[in-house]
């Protein structure tokens, strides 16, 4: 039973990573940049939701919607103000800017909300866990909702990207920005949309994560951000199913390492696995090698 409950915790944590990893992978796919501020958007989402529900007495689900709205706007704004002016100047400038935005958001949170940890109230507060296997296995409402949210997000996003005009345009821009412009696709709009989706999902991930791990401080988003980035690379950066698989595998490895090997070594094991995967498959599990036909 220990094994099963670890597996479920792993899937739940992995689902959070997967939802965050989507933001990294979609943004990378379309603008070939690593948005290192993505982790901090999660933190902002969690704070907004916290303030809305605790200080303004808003219903938790409504607070989540507000957080999604705020993060969506924040993501679009960050792209517009910090990244767009640098487009075409080389990846190093954008990378360093992204790290700068990350520190900016952390310090802004520090200034607004202070350094004292806030204890986040779970979105699923009061919902009873499910007892299975004759009471030996308890599955928390947080786990169930997180895993379900991940599945729903993946399905909706896959449909969006494959079936809608805007989604196909995003894929076209990801493949060839210039050719996409020659089709009449507004590349700026496509990139803004990608940041909007990724950042909105970051708010969802923030609330789900803080529902399970309730300590909220201005650097709350940093470590999950890095791990989710790892998950995106693990699964093959640029690939949406890759982000899902990478996230889940990472979450499971982390929880199992904690449960069976060592809590201290868990992160080292996670990153060790990344290195091994990249040695064998440099493009990640589902990453595509770009080959051109002349």
């Amino acid at each position: 039973m220990n094994f099963l409950s670890s597996l479920i915790s792993g899937l739940s944590l992995g689902s959070v990573y997967a939802i965050i990893a989507l933001g990294y992978t979609m943004v990378y796919g379309i603008s070939k940049m690593l948005n290192f501020a993505h982790g901090d958007v999660i933190m902002i989402g969690a704070y907004v939701s916290f303030i809305m529900s605790m200080h303004l007495g808003m219903n938790g689900w409504l607070a989540l919607l507000v957080a999604m709205f705020v993060c969506t706007c924040l993501g679009v704004l960050i792209e517009r103000l910090a990244y767009r002016p640098l487009r075409g100047t080389g990846s190093l400038a954008v990378l360093i800017t992204a790290i700068g935005v990350s520190y900016f958001l952390q310090n802004m949170a520090l200034l607004i909300w202070g350094a004292n940890p806030r204890i986040f109230t779970s979105l699923f507060n009061g919902m009873a866990p499910i007892h299975a296997a004759g009471g030996q296995l308890n599955i928390s409402a947080e786990s169930i909702f997180t895993i379900a949210a991940n599945i729903i997000i993946m399905i909706v996003l896959t449909l969006f990207v494959n079936k809608t005009k805007a989604g196909k345009a995003m894929r076209a821009v990801s493949e060839d920005n210039g050719a996409a412009q020659l089709m009449g696709i507004n590349v700026n709009q496509s990139i803004s949309l990608t940041f909007a989706i990724g950042s909105g999902l970051a708010a969802v991930a923030g609330v789900l994560m803080c529902s399970a791990y309730p300590v909220l401080i201005p650097t709350t988003g940093a470590m999950p951000g890095i791990k989710a980035f790892t998950a995106a690379v693990f699964g093959g950066i640029g690939s949406i199913p890759g982000a899902m698989i990478g996230g889940l595998i990472l979450g499971i490895i982390e929880i199992f390492s904690r449960a069976y090997i060592s809590t201290e070594l868990a992160d080292a094991i996670v990153f060790g696995c990344l290195i091994v995967v990249l040695l064998v498959r440099p493009t990640g599990l589902l990453g595509k090698k770009v080959h051109e036909k002349v």
């Binding site: 196909k168 894929r171 493949e175 060839d176």
Partner: peptide, 25 residues
Amino acid sequence: SHVPEGRRIFQGLTVEENLQMGAFV
């Protein structure tokens, strides 16, 4: 309409999706 050098079709999209992109506007 501009057919660029090296064709630059969207390699990962299907033939029909490529044509749909051509009809974007």
